Simulated scan of single mutants.
Amino acid sequence: MTERGDRDGGGRDRPRSGSSTGATAITRGARVRLDQPRPQRRRILPEYDPEAFGRLSERVARFLGTGRFIVWMTLVIIVWLAWNILLPPALRFDPYPFIFLTLVLSLQASYAAPLILLAQNRQDDRDRVTQEQERKQNERAIADTEYLTREIAALRMGLGEVATRDWIRSELQDMVRDMADHHVLPPETGRARGREESDR
């Protein structure tokens, strides 16, 4: 006996939710597994290490900013011009308008400018990180200085309430004098004790 679909109010058979006519796109297509990494797609462009390329650009930019590069570039241009002017016409590879030399110099400039900009951007990023670290260190130093200032102020206030040796000595001398004046001690004893206190 086969299972039939549920009957609706009009007595007609309704297909069950698990049949092929009512299947959704999720059950029909391949389900995406969330517990597994996605497979890598094939890329048309070649992959490269941006860090290694950045280091190479910094080296090139440093070389382009030196006097050695200017000297070598000047020597190459002088040799190029002398070759194409002084040698016989059969050996010249770039005659008088020097179109090939212009193309080489334009190509060198078009590559040098982005490399220099890339090196500058990397240096700016390093400077930004360094400034952020210095700012945090300055904030910590300011917080430590404020803490030490508060502690020193608290110590000064505490020391202001502490009895010093001179103050205790003067109070004892006043007490001895008062006792001698009220005849609690004989005058000679009061004077002798006052001398002893003053000698200390």
Rank of each mutant, 00 (worst) to 15 (best):
P39C: 01
R38P: 02
A109D: 10
P37D: 03
R126N: 03
R200G: 05
S170Q: 09
P114K: 05
R41T: 06
L148M: 11
A141T: 12
E58P: 01
D35A: 10
R156D: 06
A109P: 11
A143E: 12
L81N: 03
R169E: 05
R177L: 09
L118I: 10
R28I: 03
D8C: 15
R195C: 00
S57K: 05
P97W: 03
A30Y: 03
L185C: 09
Y147N: 03
R177N: 11
D178Y: 07
E196S: 07
M157R: 12
H183C: 00
A180Q: 13
R7T: 06
L115A: 15
V71F: 10
P89H: 07
L81H: 01
M157A: 15
A192M: 14
V176Y: 04
R28A: 02
T145E: 08
D125I: 13
T21S: 06
G10I: 00
Q108C: 05
L159P: 00
R200F: 07
P186M: 02
D124T: 14
S17A: 14
Q137M: 13
L148P: 00
R169K: 15
E188R: 11
N138Q: 14
R14C: 11
L87Y: 06
S106A: 15
S19D: 13
G65M: 10
R156S: 05
A23P: 06
P187V: 13
D166F: 08
A23G: 04
P50C: 10
P114L: 03
D6V: 08
L75P: 00
L56Y: 06
L81Y: 04
S170K: 10
P15M: 08
E139T: 09
R4E: 12
R169A: 09
L105Y: 09
T74S: 12
S17K: 09
E161S: 14
T2K: 12
E151V: 01
L75D: 13
A119M: 04
I99A: 09
A154I: 00
R68N: 02
D166Q: 09
E151K: 09
Y147H: 05
R31E: 10
I85P: 00
E188Q: 10
M73Y: 06
G194H: 12
M175F: 07
L172Q: 07
M175I: 08
T102M: 08
D13L: 14
A30Q: 11
D181A: 11
R41S: 05
M157C: 00
S170A: 07
L155N: 00
P187E: 12
L117G: 05
